[in-house]
Nucleic acid binder design. Structure first.
Lengths: 158, 158
DNA sequence: CAATCTGTAACAAGATAGGTTACGTGTCTT
DNA sequence: AAGACACGTAACCTATCTTGTTACAGATTG
């Protein structure tokens, strides 16, 4: 595995769901993300627990937004997927005995904490609606260039 | 594997080498780091290539600093170990076709780039001597509380 | 020549996100 | 009530990357 892409994927799919007029199944979503329906259910379970989406079982079931995209920030989603580690670097051991190592980790930790604070602050102040607006500026018709066919497929079956 | 600890480890060992009056073997260093001599040679090869340390083969050989700690920044070492990825999160694919996904990754990428710039700026302005000074403030005698025995061992054999 | 060290290849271990299969459970349609 | 549909979840495998380990070749000292 390379990098944790759950945040990116969830933002992506939430915008598509907002454009969707009806519930989307895990199978439909998995095709948009190029992955598996189980992976979708697994990742979106966190978003459901936090109240950002709803899921319905049974015939005609699937996923739908539980609030507007302007009411969900990137930080909300980051937390909903379980606050995975942001950094790929870090200390060798958690509580080193060696005081030199402690000094090294303290200095590195300061820099990492600063960067993390900045990143989370950006996450906190950006809503998913902001990202959707970026997309709308590039595609005024609001039609997805890739997943339009999936929307149409849903339309035909509904 | 959890997180890449090479940067932390190299800073740690360079400060100990600065306190060392003679060359340290990979075996000695590996005991300080709680790891293996091969891992030490592997990681320190980058520092040697960049001219921060020298290595001598054969009997009596080992590793020594090639310049003062005030002449080496954290950024130098980060680059010397091969600029490993800083973040554990990122996009799902490198060049998504979907414009919604592109908008998501662009917004996330902006935030990550900002955080990375801040982190690397900290790395650039902090020398290893700065960290050593932090240690000296806590241990005015300059004696390591853990690895002092290794220094003594070297002393006995030299 | 023997002992000591580095240099490096080769492979296993450990961790984590992601992919896949299988099956249970709830819900709507007929 | 039966069957199709869709989520919920466990279990297991895969891919990737740092780290750990073994093995051996080459260099240097005495």
């Amino acid at each position: 595995m390379r990098r944790d892409s759950r945040l990116s994927r969830m933002l992506h799919v939430l915008i598509h769901m907002d454009r969707h007029y009806k519930r989307a199944t895990s199978e439909t979503i998995s095709k948009m993300l190029g992955t598996n329906a189980v992976v979708v259910r697994r990742t979106m379970a966190g978003l459901r627990d936090f109240g950002y989406v709803r899921s319905e079982q049974g015939h005609g079931g699937g996923w739908e937004l539980a609030r507007g995209l302007d009411q969900i920030t990137l930080l909300d989603i980051y937390e909903a997927i379980g606050k995975p580690p942001l950094f790929a670097i870090g200390p060798s051991v958690d509580q080193p005995e060696c005081l030199v190592e402690q000094a090294v980790d303290a200095k590195l930790g300061d820099a990492l904490k600063e960067a993390e604070a900045l990143l989370l602050e950006r996450f906190r102040t950006v809503t998913i609606a902001d990202i959707a607006a970026d997309f709308d500026r590039r595609m005024p018709e609001g039609q997805c260039n890739v997943h339009g066919n999936i929307h149409a497929e849903q339309s035909a079956s509904g």
